[in-house]
């Protein structure tokens, strides 16, 4: 199932941080894992991912380092920082409250 992009846009930072919670990753790996975990429902565009990653790096929520990949290429990996974990916990809590509230409202409308 494909979602309206606007539904995703507010939560992309949280999704990116949650992907990094399980370990360091490079850009393409993140996009692939997100697609896999969501059964292709969330397909993050590169044009969205990298600005988010660079913004998180600037805000010290993630840190980047370079490592040699196969073929001698240098890949840039990202890992979550303690500050990033804190931000993720806050955003996750906000999301749960928000989605719970939406559910409640939708439930009330259905009952009505």
């Amino acid at each position: 199932m494909k979602f309206d992009k606007s539904l995703l846009s507010g939560s992309t930072t949280m999704l990116v941080l949650s992907l990094l919670r399980s370990g360091e990753k490079y850009g393409y790996e993140m996009i692939s894992q997100l697609a896999l975990r969501s059964d292709d429902a969330f397909q993050l565009k590169e044009g969205t991912l990298y600005p988010i990653l660079h913004g998180l790096e600037r805000d010290k929520c993630v840190e980047a380092y370079e490592k040699e990949a196969s073929g001698g290429r240098i890949r840039r990996y990202y890992r979550i920082t303690p500050k990033g974990r804190k931000v993720l916990a806050e955003q996750t809590e906000q999301w749960r409250q928000f989605s719970g509230t939406v559910e409640r409202v939708l439930g009330e409308r259905c009952q009505a």
Binding site: G27, Y28, E29, S32, E46, Y50, A69, R73, I74, R75
Partner: peptide
């Protein structure tokens, strides 16, 4: 330059996959 290199690497990862 570093951003360009990162995006190029992303492209290569995707293509190879």
């Amino acid at each position: 330059a570093p951003v360009g290199a990162e995006l190029t690497n992303h492209y290569i990862d995707c293509r190879d996959c």
